[in-house]
Design a protein around this nucleic acid. Sequence first.
DNA 1: CGCAGGTTTGATGTGTATCAAACAATGTGG
DNA 2: CCACATTGTTTGATACACATCAAACCTGCG
Lengths: 230, 230
Amino acid sequence: MNAALACAGCPVRDRAACAVLSPQEREELAAAGRIVELARGETLFAAGDESDRCATLIEGALKITSFDREGTERVLALVHPAGFVGELFTPFAHHDVVALTASRLCVFGTGTFESALHRYPALAETLLRRASADLYETRELIGLMGRRSAGGKVAGLLLAFSRAASDSPCHGAPSFDLPLSRGDMAGLLGLTIETVSRQLSAFERDGLVRRNGARGIELVDPARLGGLVD
Amino acid sequence: MNAALACAGCPVRDRAACAVLSPQEREELAAAGRIVELARGETLFAAGDESDRCATLIEGALKITSFDREGTERVLALVHPAGFVGELFTPFAHHDVVALTASRLCVFGTGTFESALHRYPALAETLLRRASADLYETRELIGLMGRRSAGGKVAGLLLAFSRAASDSPCHGAPSFDLPLSRGDMAGLLGLTIETVSRQLSAFERDGLVRRNGARGIELVDPARLGGLVD
DNA sequence: CGCAGGTTTGATGTGTATCAAACAATGTGG
DNA sequence: CCACATTGTTTGATACACATCAAACCTGCG
């Protein structure tokens, strides 16, 4: 399953890190990579493994997680299409990377990618932009986790999902599907599954949201929901 | 207070981001920068301000913080000498940057720094390394905040400080001064001042640590303290 | 000495974890 | 096609850890 000529039809070809390369530079890089498909729940990288690969997500969704010694999962970040995963400068992976849904990726050896970094300075700058953006996102997450009330955490997460589901960056989508299970939401916010579930039920009881099945969410009163966020 | 020829005697000249530059490249960059001194509590960057400056910390310590609308401070990161602060690719600053102690910095306009980035590819790669490291550190912090018990959080923070205070990366320093006030520790861990104080008192009562004044800490039983972590 | 900031300790209530069980959705094999 | 297991979600009862409110206590400093 070689990717040598896949770039032309790649759905993220103008948003991924490699978009800064010229078409021919990109094909060179692609020749060294390969397409990998992951089923929901499959692990791409495992914490502690040798960090010898990195990847651009083409379609699907990933989570970056770590486990404390009690075995409770903490979700550290979500990865969306065009996102980049993998640790370039560390010998071993810090965290697990797991597919949330069936996913397709363009995988490279870290060695080949690092040499590309030297060859194409624009690539290094793009990755720097991405790393900076990831950093702000992770700090946003800290802000979310640090809220005092469980209601504020869940409300903030719903609004974040709403924004992510919308095309326009200013207004959020009024209705969307939750991309995460209750367990993953709990892991992200530092709560338990039961507490997340109860908060959602309470939001529905108070007329803030409507639910369609376990995953469907319609924001009835986003403003009041935002009011809960601290 | 121009820094044109300060590099030669700069205490972080071989650890800061600019260390990858040749001496003459570095002098060129330094000519565009200036030394800034901050007293304890002074603000370097404020959230919402135009993000037009960045800096390398020469000596002292900084904290990166944000405030929720109730006005409680959340500490997102600490910056140590040779660290780099400032947001290069965003128009406005996301967070506040405040001096924890009297500090000295080498400050640049983001414009001059970004053009240096283009001119010296090695600089971009170094900043990428730093940004990646900052990212892992921030995710570590999430792991710390996500612990279930307050005891685990405070214990984890003490061990992190112990490691930071030590020269060798493997063993932590057995005794050191807490670099943060109770309030800052609380802001870092998502607890209250009182809870942090009570946990420290409990650790002392149980023979895990000894205290010298408000800031001095001696780890009597680091292993048992580590056992509390999770 | 008196004051201000930071820290410690105490008493009390509440929010969330925990334990437990019912429930819905989905798939499996007979 | 229907019992049946499986996985994820919801709801309930209870206990406890932490936040909150309040006051005492250092410690350095004018």
